[in-house]
């Protein structure tokens, strides 16, 4: 793992941009493709959308059948780099990497993507990454390159072989010990600035201990409009639905992001529905994000503390709202 000092970020962007499309997010909080020769300034923090959709497409065709043969419809993206992925979103991608380890569509994109993380030095609204071990510093093994802002430039750390390779041809000075120390200090300061989130820890404990009254879930279920906002924006949600579409010559199957909060998500053809109850669906969602059972499979909670669900939920049952209700009722 090599650490460098970078005076001008544009130099790195131009370098990576010679062989890749470059994506960043901006003050409008959305990802956009940038012209690497004249890159826009980098914006720290959480964009409205995580980087999930770069790899797990919101909708895509998975195969076609022409009556005789099945044909794969694998994506063939050009190499691309995401510059400025926040630590929480990097952790979420590592989580998705496990889930989609054998998914050729996900992997076809993943192998073309270079992840350049950007560490946060101030907490974002609703964020609680330190509590769920997902930030503000980039977690090991989640990025190819990691940027950290310094007073007079950037600390650039290559954290994977692919990352190290990507820097070839760029003349970089090694980072000083002092820069490393400043990074550690800034991250520690940032962690200190996060508001109290005792309710998250205590809520997760009660959830795992089965201490939550059934009627609280029922009440939260009334507030769930089944909009699919939380699952769309949650960087670790990975459920998808499929649909076959026939045209004159072919049948094509597509998949698209699904949501476990929909009544139809688990409804069977007979109309029997194991999760017909909105409260039960809300409970299941939070169980997936905070249950110790999933921790065994994925090595961590399903929640990376980005706080997007709190922003996007029209029914006011995002993570903070739910956990506070769990603790206070």
């Amino acid at each position: 793992m090599m650490a460098y000092f970078l005076t001008d970020l544009a130099e790195l962007t131009r370098h990576l941009g010679r062989t890749r499309q470059i994506w960043q997010h901006d003050a409008r909080q959305d990802w956009f493709q940038t012209d690497a020769t004249t890159p826009s300034p980098l914006v720290a923090g959480r964009p409205a959308r995580s980087a999930k959709g770069f790899f797990f497409a919101e909708q895509e065709h998975v195969f076609e059948f022409d009556g005789r043969y099945f044909r794969e419809t694998l994506p063939r993206p050009k190499p691309f780099a995401l510059i400025g992925v926040s630590s929480c979103d990097l952790v979420a991608l590592a989580y998705q990497d496990q889930f989609f380890a054998d998914d050729p569509h996900y992997q076809a994109r993943r192998q073309q993507g270079l992840l350049v993380g950007l560490e946060c030095t101030t907490p974002c609204t609703h964020g609680f990454c330190p509590t769920v071990d997902a930030g503000p510093g980039a977690r090991a093994g989640t990025a190819d390159l990691v940027l950290h802002p310094l007073d007079d430039g950037w600390l650039l750390t290559a954290t994977s072989t692919q990352g190290e390779d990507s820097l070839r041809g760029l003349s970089l000075a090694a980072a000083s010990e002092c820069a490393q120390q400043l990074r550690d200090k800034q991250l520690a300061d940032c962690e200190q600035q996060f508001p109290d989130d005792h309710h998250i820890v205590e809520g997760a404990r009660r959830l795992n201990a089965g201490e939550i009254a059934e009627d609280l879930w029922q009440h939260l279920g009334i507030q769930c409009l089944s909009c699919s906002g939380c699952t769309s924006l949650c960087p670790t949600c990975s459920c998808y639905g499929v649909q076959d579409q026939s045209s004159e010559q072919t049948i094509s199957r597509r998949r698209f992001w699904d949501s476990c909060l929909y009544d139809g998500f688990q409804r069977e053809a007979s109309q029997h529905n194991p999760s017909a109850d909105a409260g039960a669906r809300v409970q299941r969602f939070w169980y997936h994000k905070f249950s110790d059972d999933f921790r065994q499979d994925f090595g961590r909670y399903g929640c990376v503390g980005c706080g997007r669900c709190e922003v996007t939920c029209p029914g006011v049952i995002g993570v903070h709202s739910v956990m506070k209700r769990i603790c206070h009722e």
């Binding site: 959709g53 699919s228 906002g229 922003v311």
Partner: peptide, 24 residues
């Protein structure tokens, strides 16, 4: 192929309903 809500919008402030999310 997709939609995303505008966080800085004066009314919706980063939210959409089921219909909005299904626009594509």
């Amino acid at each position: 192929v997709g939609v995303s809500p505008q966080s800085d919008h004066p009314i919706s402030k980063g939210k959409l309903c089921a219909k909005g999310w299904s626009t594509p």
